[in-house]
Deep mutational scan, measured.
Amino acid sequence: LGLPKMEVFQEYYGLPPPPGAIGPFLRLNPGDIVELTKAEAEQNWWEGRNTSTNEIGWFPCNRVKPY
């Protein structure tokens, strides 16, 4: 089972920042694999864990694709 995984195809370094105070941003590099921890199809921002860095944070969902 486990959490859904997504592959990063466009880098994200915190700009634009996540809206409001939902949480810290998650740095993404192309090729990184992100395990989704909070993701809803109608939301533009998802939370996940970058398996390369083990960091957890928020990122724009348009930077990832199904793994």
Rank of each mutant, 00 (worst) to 15 (best):
residue 1 L to G: 13
residue 2 G to P: 05
residue 3 L to C: 07
residue 3 L to F: 13
residue 3 L to M: 10
residue 5 K to G: 05
residue 5 K to P: 05
residue 5 K to M: 15
residue 6 M to R: 07
residue 6 M to F: 09
residue 6 M to K: 06
residue 6 M to E: 03
residue 6 M to P: 02
residue 7 E to V: 06
residue 8 V to R: 00
residue 9 F to W: 15
residue 9 F to H: 08
residue 9 F to Q: 12
residue 10 Q to S: 06
residue 10 Q to N: 06
residue 11 E to L: 02
residue 11 E to F: 06
residue 11 E to M: 04
residue 11 E to I: 09
residue 11 E to D: 07
residue 11 E to Y: 10
residue 11 E to Q: 08
residue 12 Y to I: 02
residue 13 Y to W: 10
residue 13 Y to I: 09
residue 14 G to C: 00
residue 14 G to Y: 00
residue 15 L to S: 12
residue 15 L to H: 07
residue 16 P to G: 01
residue 16 P to D: 04
residue 17 P to A: 11
residue 17 P to M: 09
residue 17 P to N: 08
residue 18 P to F: 04
residue 19 P to F: 04
residue 20 G to Y: 04
residue 20 G to A: 10
residue 20 G to E: 13
residue 20 G to C: 05
residue 21 A to T: 05
residue 21 A to G: 15
residue 22 I to C: 15
residue 22 I to E: 09
residue 22 I to P: 09
residue 22 I to H: 10
residue 23 G to I: 03
residue 23 G to V: 08
residue 23 G to M: 08
residue 24 P to T: 07
residue 24 P to Q: 13
residue 24 P to K: 15
residue 24 P to Y: 06
residue 26 L to Y: 01
residue 26 L to T: 03
residue 26 L to P: 00
residue 26 L to R: 00
residue 26 L to F: 03
residue 27 R to A: 05
residue 27 R to E: 08
residue 27 R to M: 08
residue 27 R to Q: 14
residue 28 L to C: 06
residue 28 L to Y: 00
residue 29 N to V: 06
residue 30 P to I: 15
residue 30 P to V: 15
residue 30 P to E: 15
residue 31 G to L: 04
residue 31 G to H: 05
residue 32 D to I: 02
residue 32 D to W: 01
residue 32 D to E: 11
residue 32 D to A: 04
residue 33 I to P: 01
residue 34 V to M: 02
residue 34 V to L: 08
residue 34 V to H: 05
residue 34 V to Y: 02
residue 35 E to W: 05
residue 35 E to F: 12
residue 36 L to D: 00
residue 36 L to S: 02
residue 36 L to H: 04
residue 37 T to M: 12
residue 37 T to Y: 07
residue 37 T to F: 07
residue 39 A to Y: 15
residue 39 A to T: 08
residue 41 A to L: 13
residue 42 E to Q: 12
residue 42 E to L: 10
residue 43 Q to V: 13
residue 43 Q to N: 09
residue 44 N to K: 12
residue 45 W to N: 03
residue 45 W to G: 02
residue 45 W to T: 04
residue 45 W to V: 00
residue 46 W to F: 05
residue 46 W to I: 09
residue 48 G to L: 01
residue 48 G to R: 01
residue 48 G to M: 03
residue 48 G to D: 00
residue 48 G to K: 03
residue 49 R to Y: 13
residue 49 R to G: 02
residue 49 R to T: 09
residue 50 N to W: 01
residue 50 N to T: 03
residue 51 T to Y: 06
residue 52 S to F: 10
residue 52 S to W: 05
residue 52 S to D: 10
residue 52 S to R: 12
residue 54 N to S: 12
residue 55 E to R: 12
residue 56 I to K: 07
residue 56 I to M: 09
residue 56 I to W: 09
residue 56 I to C: 07
residue 57 G to N: 01
residue 58 W to D: 03
residue 59 F to D: 02
residue 59 F to R: 01
residue 59 F to C: 01
residue 60 P to Y: 04
residue 60 P to A: 00
residue 60 P to C: 01
residue 60 P to R: 02
residue 61 C to N: 12
residue 61 C to Q: 14
residue 61 C to D: 06
residue 63 R to Q: 04
residue 63 R to Y: 15
residue 63 R to D: 00
residue 63 R to L: 10
residue 64 V to P: 01
residue 64 V to H: 02
residue 65 K to Q: 08
residue 65 K to G: 11
residue 65 K to C: 06
residue 66 P to Q: 15
residue 66 P to L: 10
residue 66 P to R: 10
residue 67 Y to P: 11
residue 67 Y to E: 12
residue 67 Y to L: 14
residue 67 Y to G: 07
residue 67 Y to F: 10
